[in-house]
Design a protein around this nucleic acid. Sequence first.
DNA 1: CGACGGGACGC
DNA 2: CGACGGGACGC
Length: 361
Amino acid sequence: MQITGGSPNQEPAMMDTNSQTSQQNGGSNHSPVSPGAEDSKTNLIVNYLPQTMTQEEIRSLFSSIGEVESCKLIRDKATDQSSGTSSCQSLGYGFVNYKRPEDAEKAINTLNGLRLQNKTIKVSYARPSSESIKGANLYLSGLPKSMSEPELRSLFSSCGSIINCRILCDNTTGLSKGVGFIRFDQRVEAERAIKQLNGKVPEGATEPITVKFANAPSSNKNQLPITAMATYLSPTRRFLGPIHHPAGRFSSASRFSPLDGGLMPNTLLSGNALNGAGWCIFVYNLAPETEENVLWQLFGPFGAVQSVKVIRDFQTQKCKGFGFVTMTNYDEALMAIQSLNGYTLGNRVLQVSFKTNNRKS
DNA sequence: CGACGGGACGC
DNA sequence: CGACGGGACGC
């Protein structure tokens, strides 16, 4: 991984494997898991780390500030899926404990807000680990579109100490979606906010807001991000732009050819799924509500997708549980199949393979 | 448990 | 109407 972006003046020298010393913890946690009071000024939590960043890259970056006592990137060991994909995905946050408090303070001043890849990391003091700080994240909806984050923060500040406040915005318009999150320091503060503000109409607004606990970050979030998976498995791909969503109406525009549709003998098709203009992939166990964009999002990161199709029941218009994706290049299609077969989408384990041709012709 | 589509001269 | 971030406390 490259460390780029608006960097601090210290170039974070990547640690040379030949020069590593016993100083490296290498994932083990020699320091106390629960920092004592003396660690409160040296122990940092680092959030919003890029998915691909390793523990040693974090150590390297933070060692440019001062001597690091210990460093731990939190990984999800439960990302199995028994799909052959790599497990132990980064959860996007970690802890860095410095030897000296002044270095920890300097790290906050220097590295907080640093842009790494497409992320802006947050560096702050880690609070002493405690049950009372868990589950303190709130989901807010019905917010007035005109409400800013500072305004939201001040509305909730009477309930307790706010760790984080965020309003979601539409990606294209930049306008508020009326939905946001507030993380309090303590769970009791979050409970207080629900009691005091749920259903209340903010000053100057006309509609009540909804305040509730946010979903646990375990439901769908610790899934392996498809983009990261595709990047990891396709190192030759230089560019991996944002997932684009070609409207379905374009999807088959260039595919149709008068030579298609039965003129090619099936004997030439047997054994593979080459369909004149690409490789057709069978996707099974889709939910009834599945739309085409789901297939674009799943397969797009792996390469050129020509078309997607969700097969629906004619009467109900619900997905019949399967669909097809046609990709241009064999290697990309193979990578997508190997990666997405066994992938858990929602609560369903997908089965993904090349489309067979041994059905009725 | 389940299991391999459907298509047209056009905005 | 809206709807779960940028996986926040040691996975």
